[in-house]
Design a protein around this nucleic acid. Structure first.
Lengths: 152, 152
DNA sequence: ATACAATATTTGTATATACAAATGTATGTT
DNA sequence: AACATACATTTGTATATACAAATATTGTAT
């Protein structure tokens, strides 16, 4: 892992498990930075954008906080406040569930949908750009390895 | 990527670039959580632990903030305050560089070294555990793919 | 020596996140 | 119905991080 040593400006002799872990962290960080750069003009954090997409996926049906959390990439402790911010931007609406008043019903607004329409292709492009160094087979391989890593 | 769909509780038809990006994020998060769980009893964040290791790598020589930042996995905007916290815990010392008073010299203390001695094997074990589902070859392959992904 | 730009760090402020406790609501048991 | 328990969300608090501005120091040109 000479390349990793370069990235971290170190001479340390990294074990394979060490290198792997650092490599994944490092990949995650540069990819995230890349996305944030693209999302910045729209004042959306990556998770906010992701939640908007989740809401759109409901196709007009409302969804509650728990279900949003389940679908989030990084399970946050405080989805309430994330949604608050989306409400402040008028991207989503929040109402109380009629059948179970403990639950909230969250729905994407037209403004939210329009914003997604603008941001989506940008994110698509970014995703393609991020992965362009690997062939289809290599990407599949990478995904397979990451899934296998997790499933213990 | 049926497994990814399971993890995210979604039916969305993820493209290969999308799946890859989400997969890397997801891997990074669960691995980080795993580490944090181990570091918790020592009240060290992952970056704090990492900086301690960087300092030890200096083998008695002081190092300044810039050089620490260069070696960090996630380049933080505010290493000052991270070091402040390590100082509060008496894990590191800070002095002003004699030759260039703009710079600070940061040095790990004996207490810092002792703490590392305790935490190191725990982290080693965690790293091994995290990667135990993959063979040596698979780990090498994973590292190679992640490096290739980055180098555009 | 003085002025100016470059460098290294610190500080201020806003926002994000983690975690625990609090609130309000629903459900099951007697 | 009364009570305890579980559930879903919200709030409070501490800490983390991002970003910009401020401070202090050094090197360089005049």
């Amino acid at each position: 892992m000479k390349e990793l040593n370069n990235i971290l400006k170190t001479n340390a002799n990294l074990s394979l498990p060490q290198a792997t872990v650092i490599n994944i962290f490092h990949s995650s960080i540069w990819i995230k930075d890349d996305f944030l750069l693209q999302l910045k003009p729209y004042e959306l954090s990556l998770e906010q954008f992701n939640v908007l997409r989740i809401l759109r996926g409901q196709k007009g049906n409302a969804i509650n906080l728990q279900d949003i959390q389940e679908r989030m990439i990084s399970k946050m402790s405080n989805t309430t406040r994330l949604v608050d911010k989306l409400i402040k931007k008028k991207f989503v609406k929040r109402t109380i569930c009629k059948t179970n008043r403990r639950k909230v019903e969250i729905l994407i607004t037209d403004l939210g949908l329009e914003t997604l329409k603008i941001v989506d292709p940008i994110i698509d492009e970014t995703e393609k750009n991020i992965t362009k160094n690997l062939t289809q087979e290599e990407l599949t391989q990478l995904n397979t390895l990451l899934i296998k890593l997790k499933n213990k």
